[in-house]
Design a protein around this nucleic acid. Sequence first.
DNA 1: CTCCATACTAAGCGGTTGCTTAGAGCTAAG
DNA 2: CTTAGCTCTAAGCAACCGCTTAGTATGGAG
Lengths: 211, 211
Amino acid sequence: MTTTGLDGFALLDETWRTVTPDAARRMLIAAVQAFAGKGYHATTTRDIASLAGMSPAAVYIHYRSKEELLFNISLVGHETSLALLSSIEGEGATQRLKNAVAAFAGWHAEFHTTARVVQYELGALSPEHHAQVAELRRQIEQRMRSFIEDGVQAGVFDVPDVKGATLAVLSLCIDVARWYHPDGKRTPDEIGALYADLVLRMVRPNQLTDF
Amino acid sequence: MTTTGLDGFALLDETWRTVTPDAARRMLIAAVQAFAGKGYHATTTRDIASLAGMSPAAVYIHYRSKEELLFNISLVGHETSLALLSSIEGEGATQRLKNAVAAFAGWHAEFHTTARVVQYELGALSPEHHAQVAELRRQIEQRMRSFIEDGVQAGVFDVPDVKGATLAVLSLCIDVARWYHPDGKRTPDEIGALYADLVLRMVRPNQLTDF
DNA sequence: CTCCATACTAAGCGGTTGCTTAGAGCTAAG
DNA sequence: CTTAGCTCTAAGCAACCGCTTAGTATGGAG
C-alpha cells in the first residue's frame, strides 16, 4: 500500500513546518504518527516510508538512520514545549502558574501524537542524543519550578515541598499524552483548564491559618 | 552470556511467588526486567532466556509465545494493584483517600519495574488479552473514584469535577512508574506521603467559604 | 533394570529487519 | 543537446527475529 495517511497532517504540519525539503517533512510526520501509534521499536522503516507514500530507501536520502528521525522529532518537540513555557505571561504568580499549567497540559493533549514520542521514546535515543535532550528537560523543569517559587516568594502559595510539587505538576501534565484520546469527552482546552484549577488548589494556602 | 541477573529478584519474587514451576517464575521475572528496561518490542526471546540463564527454546516450554509472557505480567500486575486499592481502610473519607493515594503511588514506585510493563506495554497485548485487562482497569478507576465520591457525599471534600479529579489522581500515581528511579532522593514511602498530601490539598474545601 | 513423562538444549527454519547499492527520472545550467 | 546534480526506486544483503524440531539428560514408577 502507498497511502499517504494525510489525516491529522494539518495539526502536525504546524509543528514541523520549518522542516525542508517537502519530502523530508512528510517523512518526519509519517515517523511521528508511526512512532506514536506503535512505538519506536515496533515501527519499521518500511512503515514510515509507506506512510509517507515513498519507497523504503527514500528514508535514507534525508536521514542517516531511523534513530536520527527519532532524534529530530524529540529535539523539536522538547524545544517547542520549552518555548511554550518561556512565553507564559500573566498578572501575578497565580495567573502565571495557571496559564503555564493550562498551556503545558493542553499542549500534551492537542499534540499528543508528538508528545507521546517525546515523552515515551527517550530510551531509544543514542547516548549522545539522549544527553542533548536531557539538558532541555532540565530547563523545562526549571521553568515550571520558577512559576511555583515565585508564588511562594510572593506569599500567595503555600507549598511545603517545592521540588516535589514541581515534579508532581510536570508529571501530571506529561501523563496527559498517555491517556488523551481525541474522541474523548474533554477538549485540550478543557483539560488545560481542569488541570490549572487542580494545581492552583494544590498550592493555595489553607485560608483559616491566615489569621 | 548466561548470567541469571538475580539483582532485585527479592522484591520481584514477592509479586510472582505464586508462579510455578521455578523455571517458569524465573522466566517471568526475567521478562519483567527486560520489558521494563527496553520495552516489549525491543526485547528478544533470547534476551529473556539468557537473563533467566536458559536456552532460547526454554521459553516455549512454559509459555506459548512472547505475548503470553507479557499478558501474564500485565494480568497479575493489574490484579495486584486492584487488590491493593480494595484493601484500603481508614477512619473517614479523608483518611481513606490519603491511604489509597499513598499506597497506589507507593506501589508504582516500589514495583516500578512491574508497573512500567503494566502501564506502558498495553498496546502490545493481543485484542482479546487487552480487553481482559481493560476490564480490570475500569475497576481500578471505579475504586479510586469511590474514595473521592465518599468525601464529597460526606461534605468533607470540595470537588467540582469528580471524574476529572479521579482521572488526575490516577494519572499522577501511574506516572510515578515513568520517572521513579531507586537511586533518586525519595523513597517509595516518601513519594506516597508527598502525593497523598498533594491530593488532599486538591480536594479540600476553601475553608473561608464555610461560614 | 525398563519404561515413560518432563525439562531442557543445539540447531535451524522462514520471514523480517535496518540499511546499501546501482541506476532511473527529473530539473536546470551551460 | 549535454552534462551535472539531486531525488527517488527496485532489488537485495547480512543479521536477527519469533518460534519449531529433533534429540538428550534426568528422575520417579513399576
